[in-house]
Simulated assay, not measured.
Amino acid sequence: MSRTYVITGAASGIGKTTAELLRADGHTVIGVDLAGVEVDGDLSTSEGRRAAAEAATQLAGGTVDAVIACAGLSLPKAITAAVNYFGMTEFLEAMQPALAKSDAPRTALISSLSSVQPVFPPLVDAFLNDDEQAALGIAEELAQNEQTGGLIYASSKQAISRWVHREAVTERWAGAGIPLNAVGPGVVKTPMTADLRATPEGSALIDAVVPMPLGYHQDPESIAKLLIWLTSVDNTHCCGQTIYCDGGAEAVLRGEDVWSWNNDGIAQKFAELYAKLGG
Rank of each mutant, 00 (worst) to 15 (best):
M192T: 04
P185A: 00
E171R: 15
T199F: 00
G248I: 07
T193N: 04
W163V: 13
H217L: 08
L180T: 03
C239E: 14
P211I: 12
A174C: 04
V164P: 00
I206Q: 08
C238V: 14
V187A: 00
A154K: 02
I223F: 03
Q241M: 05
V233P: 13
D207Q: 12
S222V: 13
P220L: 08
G175V: 09
H165A: 14
M212Y: 07
Y216Q: 15
N235I: 07
L196E: 01
L180W: 03
M212D: 11
Q241S: 14
T193E: 02
E201H: 09
A224D: 10
Q218E: 11
A176W: 08
V169S: 15
L205F: 14
T236E: 15
V188C: 05
V252D: 02
A208R: 13
L227E: 09
L230N: 04
I228C: 03
N235G: 09
Y153A: 09
T193W: 01
L230F: 04
S232L: 12
D219F: 05
A182C: 13
P191G: 00
I178Q: 01
Y244L: 05
D207R: 13
T193G: 02
R197Y: 02
I206P: 09
A168G: 11
G177I: 07
I178R: 01
A251V: 11
V187S: 00
D234G: 10
P220Q: 12
L227S: 10
L230W: 01
T193F: 00
P191A: 00
H237W: 13
E171N: 10
E171K: 14
E250V: 05
G175R: 11
V169H: 15
G175L: 10
H165E: 13
T242H: 04
R166A: 13
K157L: 06
L227V: 07
D246R: 05
A204L: 04
T193K: 01
A176Q: 10
E250I: 08
L205G: 05
L227T: 08
N235E: 14
Q158M: 15
V233Y: 03
R166H: 11
G175Q: 09
S232I: 12
Y216A: 14
Q218L: 12
W173A: 02
S161P: 02
A159V: 07
T190R: 00
D234W: 07
P185F: 00
M212C: 05
T236H: 14
C245R: 12
D246W: 03
A159W: 00
G248L: 11
E167C: 09
L196F: 02
G184N: 07
G247N: 10
T242V: 14
E167H: 11
A194D: 05
E171G: 11
A224K: 01
G202W: 03
Y153Q: 03
V188F: 01
Q158W: 01
P179S: 11
R197N: 06
G177W: 03
S156G: 08
W163Q: 11
A208H: 06
R166P: 04
P179F: 01
K189F: 00
G240Q: 09
R197V: 10
I160T: 04
G247H: 08
A154S: 14
A176K: 07
D234P: 13
A194F: 03
Y216T: 15
Q218F: 02
G175H: 10
R162V: 08
S222K: 04
C239R: 13
E171I: 11
Q241C: 12
P211W: 06
W163Y: 15
G248Q: 14
V183M: 03
G215I: 09
G248F: 10
A174G: 06
I160G: 00
L227N: 06
P213R: 14
M212S: 07
V209Q: 14
